[in-house]
Computed example of a mutant assay.
Amino acid sequence: MAASLLASFVTLSCLFTVSFCFQTKRFSLPMAGRDWSPAGATWYGSPQGAGSDGGACGYGKAVEEAPFSAMISAGSPSIFESGKGCGSCYQVRCTTHKACSGKPVTVVIADFSCPVGVCYKEPAHFDFSGTAFGAMALPGMADELRHAGYLHIEYSRVACEYPGKTITFHVGTGSNPYYLAVVVEFEDGDGDLAAVDIKEGSGEWRPMRQSWGAVWRLDPESALHGPFSIQLTSKYSGKKLVANNVIPEGWKAGATYRSFVNYS
Rank of each mutant, 00 (worst) to 15 (best):
I72Y: 00
Y162C: 03
C119V: 04
F27I: 07
Y120W: 14
H125F: 11
A99E: 13
T96A: 14
F128K: 09
E161R: 12
G54Q: 06
S28W: 06
E122R: 14
A148C: 06
T96Y: 03
S78A: 12
G172E: 11
H152P: 02
Y150M: 12
P38F: 10
P139Q: 13
A32P: 00
R146E: 05
E161W: 09
K84D: 14
A124N: 01
A66T: 15
A70S: 15
V118W: 09
G87E: 09
R146C: 08
S88M: 07
G164F: 02
S129Y: 06
V108I: 15
I167Y: 05
P67V: 08
K121W: 04
P163Y: 13
F27N: 01
C57F: 08
S156C: 08
A159W: 00
Y120C: 01
A66V: 08
A74Y: 09
S156M: 04
K103I: 11
D143W: 04
E81R: 12
I167H: 04
P139I: 11
R34W: 11
G33D: 10
V108C: 11
V63Q: 06
G51T: 07
V105W: 00
G117S: 10
R146L: 10
E122T: 11
A124V: 05
Y120S: 13
K121P: 00
S113V: 01
Q91L: 11
P123G: 15
G83C: 08
C94V: 10
S82H: 13
S88D: 01
K84S: 13
W43D: 06
S101L: 12
L145T: 12
G87S: 11
Y59R: 09
V108W: 03
A62T: 12
D127R: 01
G51D: 04
G130W: 04
R34N: 15
A135N: 07
C89A: 15
K98A: 14
D127Q: 04
V63I: 12
A74E: 12
R157A: 03
Y150P: 00
A99R: 06
Y44M: 02
G58M: 10
G45N: 03
G49F: 04
A41R: 05
G102V: 09
G75H: 06
G33S: 07
S76C: 06
A74G: 14
M141F: 10
Y120G: 11
G51W: 02
I72E: 00
S46N: 14
G172H: 11
G85L: 01
F27T: 00
G172V: 06
A135R: 12
T42G: 11
G164R: 01
G83A: 07
V107N: 07
G75L: 03
M71R: 10
P67G: 10
L151C: 09
G51S: 09
V107L: 10
H147C: 06
M141V: 01
V158F: 00
A66Y: 10
I109E: 03
K84P: 01
T106I: 15
C89W: 01
Y90E: 03
K61H: 15
C89T: 06
P139V: 11
H97P: 02
A135E: 14
S69V: 12
T95D: 12
I79A: 04
Y90M: 07
T131H: 10
G60L: 05
P104S: 02
I167E: 07
S113W: 02
A132N: 07
E65H: 10
G51N: 05
S37D: 02
Y162K: 02
M31I: 00
E144W: 01
A66H: 07
